[in-house]
């Protein structure tokens, strides 16, 4: 019969419409649904369409999420080296970066002129960065990681969009907080929660004391 197809289509749209309200009835048409209902509404079991009320509720991004990179520094309350860079300015991230948005000035000893394992300056131009995560993937020291903070909108790009070392540095604690599983995996691979060099020095010291 002509028109049956359209009728079927309208039935589907009606079903969608009704489904949306069935779920809302369950929560008594409250404007802000309690947090425990959130996974069900934003998961596979949800019938109907549910909006993430963005500023009032936000979808937490998964652990592997990548946005602009940040530099891991030692916790500021670290007993031995508070705020010390994990980065050794080996330059691998700058080499592997596809759009070449990383600039590093390698640290140098002012007296001997020999390189020291700490970057003097570190820049990332976030207008070029493509969030690919290769820098974090190939960093041998777990010193550069992809951030989860996507709320970066600004009114001016000339001053705010080249991130320098101060802007990029975040405590190791932050990385542990946003990606606990991965931080643990990496620590296991390194052999401890400390930086690779620290662990190495400790092992050396232990050997020497033997």
């Amino acid at each position: 019969m002509y028109g049956l197809g359209i009728w079927r289509g309208l039935r589907v749209t009606l079903k969608h419409f009704v489904n949306t309200y069935i779920e809302d009835v369950k929560w008594g048409f409250r404007r802000h649904i309690p947090a425990e209902a959130f996974p069900a509404r934003q998961g596979l079991d949800a019938r109907g369409v549910f909006t993430v009320e963005y500023p009032d509720e936000k979808l937490a991004v998964p652990e592997r999420f990548r946005f602009i990179p940040f530099l891991v520094v030692e916790n500021y309350d670290h007993p031995e080296r508070p705020g010390h860079d994990w980065c050794t300015s080996c330059g691998i991230c700058a080499k592997v970066c596809p759009p070449q948005c990383i600039w590093i000035v390698r640290g140098e000893d002012p007296e001997t002129g020999r390189p020291v394992p700490e970057p003097e300056e570190f820049y990332i131009d976030i207008d070029i960065c493509m969030n690919c995560g290769l820098c974090a993937e190939f960093c041998p020291f777990d010193a550069i990681k992809m951030d989860h903070d996507y709320e970066l909108a600004s009114y001016d790009r000339t001053t705010a969009h080249i991130f320098d070392k101060a802007r990029l540095s975040k405590e190791f604690r932050y990385w542990q907080a946003i990606a606990p599983t991965r931080a643990a995996e990496e620590a296991e691979a390194r052999g401890g929660w400390e930086h690779k060099d620290v662990l190495k020095a400790k092992a050396k010291a232990a050997k020497a004391s033997e």
Binding site: A35, F38, P39, Q42, G43, V52, P55, D56, E57, K58, L59, A60, V61, P62, E63, R64, F65, H148, D149, E151, A177, I178, A179, P180, T181
Partner: peptide, 21 residues
Amino acid sequence: MDLPERIRGEANLVNDRVRDF
């Protein structure tokens, strides 16, 4: 990477809601 064991994120920003599958 391999598949992660769980699909979940950590609350990081204000008002972040966590899902865990």
